[in-house]
Amino acid sequence: MSSFNAPDANLAPPPRFRRPSPFAWVVGLVFLALLVQGVMVMEITPTRLAKGAVNLVDFIGRAFPPNPADLDVIAESMLETLYIALVGVTAGVILSVPFAFLAARNTTPHIAVRVVTRFVIAAMRTIPDLVWALIFVVAVGLGPLAGVLAIVMDTIGFAARFFSERIEEVHPGPSEALESTGAGRFSVIGGAIMPETLASMTATSLFSVEKALRSAVTLGLVGAGGIGVELAAAMRLFNYDEALTIIIAILICVLGFEQLSSAIRRHVI
């Protein structure tokens, strides 16, 4: 009892603050130096920010009210955007499945295949969709095909990675049971691994569709088809009221689709 009243020197609590390690010091100082340097190089000054705000108000003033005159053209390109997303994501998800099985530790035919596949998937993921679009515009010309191909790449980078991570999590038991009957590699994959991973793969695929729709909107900015082409044109011609209509259309479509997709996902899982 007395020990609660009389503090013991050995029971002193640890210091309130710990001295940061030299590593933390170095990282912190480098970060700070780059930050200051960046702000100075980009000439971010209060006057420029204030001027920007004024311009923004001017833009909004000229954009209101939105101009619905070209609604039919807008609807048509919005539909094209949907098609780009849908075709691209479907092809991408289908191609992701073999990529994922080649990349997963427990299903790859060889460790070297796994390393190469994982590198390819990582490259597809880390190269941004707009860069893919620029590349494919060079390869197949302006238009929706370039957009579709860009989305295929982006989808594989995303979906194949999550598919393969899910495949690596499957319980080995059912696969071993099927192997023990003398089943071949494809039978084990289709019979034991697919049933266990299908729900999660479906959810990932729906995420991919949402992601693809958002990229399909912007891909037009570099000429790869869809609504982005119209938006870029309207902005360049200072038709801000038409641009606003397009932005509202994008908002409605993407939000609507996200609602639909999350409803389906809740149903699947």
């Binding site: 059912p174 071993e176 049971a177 003398g182 071949g184 266990e196």
Partner: peptide, 20 residues
């Protein structure tokens, strides 16, 4: 595989495939 076909295995944790 052809030898395994003639060897049945029963496991401690059953190892049934879920979702089918």
């Amino acid at each position: 595989r052809s030898v395994r076909r003639r060897i049945g295995v029963v496991f401690q944790h059953f190892n049934l495939v879920p979702n089918v």
